[in-house]
Design a protein around this nucleic acid. Sequence first.
DNA 1: GTCTATACCTCGATAGAC
DNA 2: GTCTATCGAGGTATAGAC
Lengths: 209, 209
Amino acid sequence: MTVEQPSTREQILLQASILFARQGYHATSTRQIASAVGIRQPSLFYHFPTKTDIMRALLVEAIDGPVAAVERQLAADGSPAIRLHRYIVQDLITLCESVYNLAGTTTAAVLADPEFAAAASRYRCLFAARTRLIQEGIDAGEFFPVNAEFASRAIEWAIEGLHTEIVSGSPGTLEADVNQVADFCVRALLIDGSKIDEIRAAGPAATAG
Amino acid sequence: MTVEQPSTREQILLQASILFARQGYHATSTRQIASAVGIRQPSLFYHFPTKTDIMRALLVEAIDGPVAAVERQLAADGSPAIRLHRYIVQDLITLCESVYNLAGTTTAAVLADPEFAAAASRYRCLFAARTRLIQEGIDAGEFFPVNAEFASRAIEWAIEGLHTEIVSGSPGTLEADVNQVADFCVRALLIDGSKIDEIRAAGPAATAG
DNA sequence: GTCTATACCTCGATAGAC
DNA sequence: GTCTATCGAGGTATAGAC
């Protein structure tokens, strides 16, 4: 029974993700990445043709999990509030459980760059799906009749905000904070805020059921 | 009656703020800034000793207004919900009405840099003051007994999120969106969410009264 | 698959003429 | 107060030995 050693390619992605999260993509040099991996700078280019491609690989990691999470809840049973709460929790858990530090990858300054246009497009799909989930709650009379697109943006800000904090801060508080974000966002929409406890309680078990 | 021409110094701050907002601080070169101003790159250094000092000047603009806004509401009369709502609106209006584009200036990746330590310290004061305002609402029984620091963070994410969108997007929707953010944040805390309309209505007039 | 060496570029900043 | 010219550092990426 052998333990898989992380390949150099995976090490590059890991160390690059840590540096990108801390300093930003443009402020991080390929020399820094190589140094963190323990190889020389030109050796990076055996594994990735350009620095851009390192970021592109991380963007796929950062977007695919959340997209899967929201689509799962769009297709699931239960009240919209329960499914929205569950989606927010799963989105954050997906991001935080990644082996990479994906904070800041989907920042506007990054996605605005033409060389990341493909990721930006996929990120807009995530936004649209989340908006649909919110609209279901409004149509069902469970949520205030707010602008669903606006609410979708606000939830994105909260998810990105906590994600950035968790991966760059003290560990251990993940589950508590994740639930607090989901509570905050769902309560901001709920007509009957007192139902938040049962909505949260309905979350974790429901997917398996 | 003469119309003041913007000085070169102000032009540099303006164009730098626009480029920093769009591309980030590190991705923006002094040549780009100079080109946008209409001067040559070395001429910048007659007005600012370093590129860092340009950003420092913008950070003062980005933080002082919000600090003043929250301290005004900490000292004001009225229910905590009304004052928190009013603060959020004023914070955003202050940021958006600045002649500079201040989006992204207070990003973690910027404030983490030691050369911006002074601004980071002042930013923490803003956070602490906002947390106090929220705690007043909890103590008064108007808000859910959430973690006040967590709520303060969530409100920060929403303010930064909308600020970034407004200054880099289509104009005209400012007031509507600002109220939506304040509504979203206050409703997430309010035990009785149905009161949001009267809380919002109490906002604009109260400071002058 | 990693190395040394290096090409070539752009960066922030300086010197000194005007 | 702005210019031209340029410096030295550090950026991404390539060539070719091992």
